[in-house]
Design a protein around this nucleic acid. Structure first.
Ligand SMILES: [Zn+2]
Ligand SMILES: [Zn+2]
Ligand SMILES: [Zn+2]
Ligand SMILES: [Zn+2]
Lengths: 133, 133
DNA sequence: GCTTGATCTTGTAGTTACTACAAGGTGCAG
DNA sequence: CTGCACCTTGTAGTAACTACAAGATCAAGC
């Protein structure tokens, strides 16, 4: 399986696959006689693992750790759980931030009376002239 | 006012202020005889405007547009509102994504029985072996 | 056999919004 | 006058890709 096909099979561009190899997430696959990368089912599984992890918001270094764990199945899964919980907490923190942001933005957007820029509430808030906050 | 003081006054590092100048968000201020940047109240207001906008999640190019609007106060504020609403919609989209993410992550994290990596639900889901999804 | 077009190779640069240095000039206190 | 904090420019690093550029290889059609 050449890189393009592997990409189509996993929804990853060839350039991204090569990037993952460069960064050590994917081991260098064997090459054909004409120096093309030659992927087997094993590498495809690994790629899918990366894809799923990235979709859940894990960073590349977290993915690297998770795959190292997966390769050593007799260990206790503590570290795995720790990484996943950390990610969950981060998502929750981001949610909190974004909810606050939405509240602010909604307030600002809704308070505009649609006149000239001089009277625009949005600009007022940004400039901090009015009773901002 | 030199750059360091301006930074302290607005909570921005000097390096960031110079970066804003390079990127055209902040007009180049006058210089002292020894070539130091010399900021007045006007520039400080602009900096605060940038700071507030960035905190609300506007991109630098959106901030540039917003400041251009603010400099032309007799126009109708339509464009301003459009930018702010677009930002609000983006925040809402991110919230939706993150809520879905949190649901997935919570499910995965909670389903782990804390045994070996071989039995770890987190790894299973990432590898896509189980009834994932 | 040969041409065309897709696919592959490496390497480098661009993206966003900064941050961190490096090497040297300036300002002021003691 | 000697420190030391502060300023100057310029360059490179961050995260996770994406987008070329220039050249090799392959598959199909004629
Ligand atoms: Zn309006
Ligand atoms: Zn308005
Ligand atoms: Zn566990
Ligand atoms: Zn587990």
């Amino acid at each position: 399986m050449r890189i393009g096909e592997a990409g189509r099979a996993t929804g990853t561009k060839s350039e991204t696959i090569r990037y993952y190899e460069r960064e050590g997430l994917l081991p260098p696959p064997p090459r054909t006689s004409s120096n093309y990368r030659d992927y087997g089912p094993d590498e495809i599984s690994r790629l899918r693992f990366i894809k799923r992890s990235r979709k859940l918001g894990f960073s590349m270094s977290q993915v690297k750790e998770l795959m190292a764990m997966a390769d050593d199945p007799d260990q206790p899964c503590e570290t795995v759980d720790k990484i996943a919980s950390a990610q969950l907490r981060e998502v929750e923190a981001k949610l909190t931030d974004l909810r606050a942001l939405r509240k602010e933005l909604t307030k600002v957007v809704e308070s505009c009376k649609h006149g000239t820029v001089a009277e625009c509430r949005v600009i007022e808030v940004l400039a901090g002239s009015g009773a901002g906050r």
